[in-house]
């Protein structure tokens, strides 16, 4: 148990939190501005994964092998129980990201998306974790109600490290092959073809409807609509949603009829022919060794 006087509280807890929050908000704003600037010209051609075949080993890796290995590795990371191994996993994921030459902006964007949930954990857990014997408590001044449990802090840090390590693997997993190829790989692994087709279609139309929504909200702003915290805003947003649904459901019908007219009978042609080589198996075994090392580190060395 550590007693420190109350005036340390702003210094040790509030100040770092505020700084982190300000950085997160600022980065989010920058990312938002960039995403708008980038997306506006070619909204209809979303690129998740580059088409040019790429140059890194992960681009050349067989997509089936890649999915199974990275998904399995993610579950191994999720099962780590200590901070050290989890941080090692973050290191491995960083190395993989560098090797696969993914775009830094998109990796940052993904990490920013985590800040909301993980921020809540980091703020709440140190103060709410039940006290066990052997825990280090930091008590500020003479307050009873404000007592920071270092075990909670450690736990939330471990969770954050696991989440970051897995999130860092997502860009190497999804953006090192075009989305249709990744989904084709999933089908060959036994996922129903319908599921992968649906993902492909939704992915395409998310961008179409986002464009539509942006157009509608531009129209609303031109007519003087500003978002506020009142019932009028809620009503307007509700009508906006209703209109979005009406328009998109009608478009759904047109899309489906157009597909039928072009001979759609529940199948798309295969995008590529997949072939497994020795290199693919070798890559998978390297990952397997890494996973085994992480588990050993986590379970035996602690």
């Amino acid at each position: 148990m550590v007693h420190i006087s109350l005036w340390y509280l702003p210094l040790l807890v509030l100040l770092p939190l505020t700084v982190l929050a300000i950085i997160a908000v600022w980065l989010r704003r920058v990312a938002h501005r960039q995403s708008i600037a980038e997306e506006e010209p070619d909204w209809s051609v979303p690129a998740l994964g580059d088409e040019e075949g790429g140059i890194s080993p992960l681009h050349r890796w067989d997509v089936r092998c890649k999915i199974v290995t990275i998904l399995g590795f993610s579950f191994v990371i999720a099962s780590l129980g200590h901070l050290g191994p989890a941080l090692t996993a973050v290191g491995i994921s960083l190395i993989v990201s560098v090797i696969s030459k993914v775009s830094l902006a998109r990796v940052l964007f993904r990490l920013l998306a985590l800040t909301g949930f993980l921020g809540m954990l980091v703020v709440v857990m140190p103060f709410t974790v039940p006290t066990h014997s052997g825990d280090t408590l930091v008590i500020f001044g003479n307050t009873d109600w404000l007592c920071l449990n270092l075990r909670g802090l450690l736990l939330s840090a471990t969770i954050s490290a696991r989440a970051v390590a897995i999130a860092l693997l997502m860009e190497p997993l999804f953006s090192t092959a075009p989305l249709p190829v990744t989904l084709h790989g999933l089908c060959r692994l036994g996922v129903p073809e319908m599921a992968s087709q649906s993902v492909l279609l939704s992915y395409r139309y998310v961008h179409v409807f986002r464009h539509e929504a942006r157009r509608m909200s531009a129209g609303m702003q031109v007519r003087g609509f500003r978002k506020r915290t009142d019932i009028q805003t809620l009503r307007t947003v509700a009508y906006f949603l209703g209109m979005l649904f009406v328009r998109s459901f009608e478009r759904t019908e047109r899309v489906f009829e157009a597909m039928r007219a072009r001979g759609y009978r529940g199948r798309f042609p295969e995008p590529v022919e997949l072939r497994m080589r020795t290199m693919d198996i070798l890559m998978a075994s390297v990952w397997l060794v890494a996973a085994a090392v992480l588990i050993t580190y986590d379970r035996i060395l602690f």
């Binding site: 649906s198 395409r204 998310v206 409807f209 986002r210 929504a213 979005l244 759904t252 489906f256 759609y264």
Partner: peptide, 17 residues
């Protein structure tokens, strides 16, 4: 099922507001 996929996209966009 393609219809479900397209409708999903609409809900997805609505959830971003």
């Amino acid at each position: 099922l393609p219809k479900v996929a397209v409708v999903t996209a609409a809900f997805f966009v609505a959830s971003l507001i």
